[in-house]
Amino acid sequence: MSEDRAAAKAEPSTPSAVLPPTARRVDLLLVADMVERGARVLDVGCGDGALLELLERERGVDGRGIELSREGVNSCVARGLSVIQGDADTDLGAYPDDAFDYVVLSQTLQATRHPRQVLEQMLRIGRRAIVSFPNFGHWRIRLQVGFAGHMPVTPNMPFAWYDTPNIHLCTIRDFVSLCEKADIVMERSFALDAGGSRVRVDAPWWIWNLFGAQGVFLLRRGGVPARRP
């Protein structure tokens, strides 16, 4: 392992570190709402295990987690959750195809080294993927970069440029075009505004991209339509 890799590993990229707890809560409920009862779920970057706990309690899922930070993992396992210390970029490859009904990546995509590969791995090992991320196209961010001329710091991304774990930020529009390029089908999608409410469903993409503080997507592989689990 090279030194910079070791340093990168030591950096926390837990969702709880990427997003303040209140913003994550809303996102958790939305994600939980998309998961079918009794499903097999892998939460990648599961942080303190809040989503897994919610899913196990409310939806009776068979939940597993991967988390980079040692503290996060230890607190999950101590609470009886089935979580391993690992890295979205390197540890998804070990799982077999279709091992899960859902693979969740909540507020972590922008902190991975190879977001496209991570997405593709998620849709290999899971029949569906649920991805949420902060939208870099939000109007406040555009204002900060465009008019104030500095890297944006927002409630969703509360880090200075020099110590942020977010190395691959994207807009909702960017994400949609990656899905098209990688032959990934968006089954459902939402944009949440800064207050955590859903942006109007029938609004055009440019509205979402401007007023959505975060995007939440339910994805499946292109090609053959997948059966509901």
Binding site: R64, R70, N74, I84, A94, Y95, P96
Partner: peptide, 21 residues
């Protein structure tokens, strides 16, 4: 230990893994 975990993941076994500092 990670090799054990990867092998268990490969058969989708139920596994927790902690590295203690």
């Amino acid at each position: 230990s990670r090799a054990i975990v990867h092998a268990l993941n490969a058969v989708a076994a139920s596994v927790s893994f902690v590295e203690i500092e």
